[in-house]
Write a protein that binds this DNA or RNA. Structure first.
Lengths: 252, 252
DNA sequence: TCCGAGCGTTGCCTTTTCGGCAACACTGTT
DNA sequence: AACAGTGTTGCCGAAAAGGCAACGCTCGGA
């Protein structure tokens, strides 16, 4: 009975007409006048004029003052951002993890910020027989991983006490870490060269919501002999390209 | 008389109510049921139910099967992308040019693809007294500039005949150029080291529309002694960060 | 397990709103 | 100057929407 595809459902005709107007404006390469919209939707110009005025009041369309023509309004962008923020991030992000693994050949991970660290939520394992292993639920060491540094660079908290040296390359100086975080904020991605464990390299980029808050971190990791500096540099573009569509609020 | 704020305008009440439903869903942190939407909008549940069914048919809202609750639908994202693609690109891009110049200190440029090359549409000059000069209307040499290589990497045509050597570093081999273009497509940005003229370095990134077509190119250029490999590398993040919001269709 | 409250939908009828005709003002082109 | 097309709005009849009531369903509490 709740199946809206049943023929007994009585649609609200006025809403259908209003949506037809939005569709026509979306499909048109240029702004459209009232008469043109009326022709394309089959609504008379007087009705179209009134509906356009109401849609303009709600900012779903915008009347261009110079030409008197109409185009879609920016309230739609706000509504779209709200629509996107409701989607389960894992569902949306998974194809990007697949794409990243295919482009780079390395393990792609999705993490979410938590208390004191970021946690792996999903991953797509490298198809290579030599691979770095990810694990759902595993927290990342903030100062010694690319994921962790993205977390710290965007408001994550660093625990008190000494910074543990996991390898020779682990950053253990708080001032050196601060400098690294500034650079990460500037360029929008982080890297780790065998800092968490010998032979493991990684890069990571943030996923932000419409209010610029960190909601997730996209990462790539692999064995240092294969995922070396050159390979990491080549992977930055795909990483950012795959993180950007997940971020309604990409920083400008 | 065409001023819609005049009190004589008769709004379409049904459209106003439908927009109120969208607003309520946008403002809610979670999905909402029919009764809750009715309470928040002041519409009776039967009317709300019918309107939601019609909005769902048009995909502006989505009924979640498991819970029977409603959330904003993904058609809004399509409409929003269309809304954004109508905005005058220069108006939108200019603050990004300013931001890029401020972050990097170098001249930031906006180009659009044309016949056989890309043309500078807007630029923000470096504030440094030693600067590279841009010029609106100037076409870029496709094989010897970062802007031109972005253009070529995404479908631009390379003229017949020999590739002119403007400096020692100009790529004049078509096979070497092809390899460079593959790399540019992979990582999403291009570079030029003193290839168009001695002492001038540049990087560039594409701006794509919702159909993945190249609509513009964002660039940074400066004197090679200052805008060297390290400075260029540091500038890639800001460049991509400023290109991404201009691209409704960032490649996934 | 049963009952009650709340939810969500739909039939039906009344009321309200919308649609569209006609008139008017304006703009651009010939 | 005239004409064609655009865009808006008054007004009224027709159509659609709103809302009441009834029904079915689900969930939580006793």
């Amino acid at each position: 009975m709740t199946d809206v595809s049943q023929t007994t459902v009585r649609p609200v005709v006025v809403v259908e007409r209003a949506l037809a107007i939005l569709d026509v404006l979306a499909d048109a390469p240029q702004d459209l006048g009232t008469n043109e919209i009326a022709r394309r939707t089959g609504i008379t110009p007087s009705s179209a004029s009134r509906m356009l005025a109401t849609l303009a009041k709600g900012e779903l369309v915008r009347r261009v003052p110079d030409t008197g023509r109409y185009r879609l309004g920016l309230r739609l962008v706000q509504l779209a951002n709200s629509a996107l923020s409701r989607i389960d991030l894992r569902d949306v992000a998974h194809p990007h993890l697949v794409a990243l693994m295919e482009v780079t050949g390395e393990t792609a991970t999705l993490s979410v910020p938590g208390e004191g660290s970021a946690m792996t939520l999903d991953f797509v394992q490298s198809s290579s027989s030599v691979r770095s292993v990810a694990e759902i639920g595993r927290p990342s060491v903030p100062h010694a991983t690319a994921i962790g540094k993205v977390y710290l660079s965007l408001g994550g908290t660093l625990p008190d006490g000494r910074l543990t040296a996991y390898t020779d390359r682990t950053i253990t100086s708080r001032s050196a870490l601060s400098k690294a975080l500034v650079r990460i904020r500037e360029r929008g991605w982080a890297e780790a060269f065998e800092e968490r464990e010998p032979g493991l390299n990684a890069i990571a980029a943030p996923v932000l919501d419409a209010d610029q808050r960190l909601v997730a971190i996209l990462g790539l990791q692999g064995p240092a002999w294969r995922f070396d500096a050159a390979a990491m540099e080549r992977a930055v573009g795909p990483l950012l390209d795959n993180a950007a569509p997940l971020s309604p609020g990409s920083p400008a």
